[in-house]
Design a protein around this nucleic acid. Structure first.
Lengths: 191, 191
DNA sequence: GGTTCACATGAACAGACGTTCAGCTAAAGA
DNA sequence: TCTTTAGCTGAACGTCTGTTCATGTGAACC
């Protein structure tokens, strides 16, 4: 066989695409550059992804599903609600630091409609996690009584802001611990 | 003279550009379409803005300075810190609703570097406002003792998340009042 | 050797892009 | 009437884009 396995080539392309899309946005990213950075020809790239759009969607789906399942796994076996919230926030921020390109999901390129269903599913999923944690917190009397869906929406919105800040600030300048404490102060009964 | 005054044409162009950039991002926006929507020719557009980049920067600057001065004006003559925070948040969210294009400032198009100085100046300004409010709150004993710059950073990050959520959710679904309360619970001594 | 197969190439195409420029139009002043 | 002037036009240019396709290469099997 030739140089690389199909699998290796595909993953090379995905890596390069990730970099390109996160640095230049959808329209700004360039198929020739992506191919070049993946050490493959343009034609070769098109063997694995039938279009730019398909490549970008595949990327987004992969990343969001990975983060979603990671979150679910860790949050599931944490029974203390306060701890669960903390974990929820730090998993998301850690993942953001590791994969800065996750910002793709927030982007507005090609209008908000691009990949809208994938993004929507992800955000709904995230909100459901938070709702579950808060409901448990309220039930066990650790958290304040509140409108659970509304509060979950606020907490996920805050998280979204933290994620953006982590992406925009030079590394380390953003304090994850402080964020968790601040959020918890809004939830806990006895601080 | 011909059809319109230079002033009218320029403002028509800015309106069309705003729409284009916020809907399609920097690379996705199209000078021909912008000109068309502004009822002017491509050549005409270039009489007023020497390049796409200049047009976008001029737009961003205008919007951010408007919001910044609006914030300053209203926050300045509010002496109750809790009220000031509430106003700070709602001014920002109202402005976001009115000018959805503000999302330009959150974007990553053309790399993070595009318009970086304008954005940075704005965000620093915003953080300074928040710091001032918090410092006053701590001084008068209404707010909890805290690391002021760190806390201000967290609050502005949260605001950023709220702004994004307002932009992403269909109108009205996002509860401003609830956000303010949540943030204040993290700041106030006696809730 | 020949054939098959998976993997790969890059020139070429068609269209879109930002930008320029020689020239137009009609109102205002002489 | 002629000239000036502010405002405007849109074809044309060069470049870059996503995408296609006829072709190449070398390992594996017969």
């Amino acid at each position: 066989m030739n140089r690389r396995s199909a699998k290796d080539s595909k993953s090379s392309i995905l890596d390069a695409a990730l970099k390109a899309f996160s640095e230049h946005g959808y329209s700004g990213a360039n198929m020739r550059t992506i191919a070049g950075n993946a050490n493959i020809s343009v034609g070769g790239l098109y063997l694995y992804f039938k279009s730019k759009e398909a490549l970008c969607l595949s990327l987004m789906k992969e990343r969001l599903e990975e983060l979603s399942s990671k979150t679910e796994r860790i949050v599931k076996d944490t029974y203390n609600p306060a701890e669960a919230i903390e974990k929820f926030i730090s998993i998301n921020l850690d993942y953001t630091k590791e994969h800065r390109e996750i910002i793709l999901t927030q982007g507005r390129d090609k209008g908000f409609t691009f990949g809208a269903d994938v993004k929507k599913r992800f955000f709904r999923q995230q909100r459901k996690f938070v709702e579950k944690i808060i409901r448990e917190g309220v039930r066990t009397g650790v958290f304040l009584e509140c409108n659970v869906p509304e509060t979950a929406k606020i907490v996920t919105a805050m998280l979204r802001g933290f994620v953006l800040s982590v992406l925009l600030e030079p590394d380390g300048l953003f304090n994850v611990r402080g964020c968790c404490e601040f959020v918890l102060r809004g939830l806990l009964k006895n601080v």
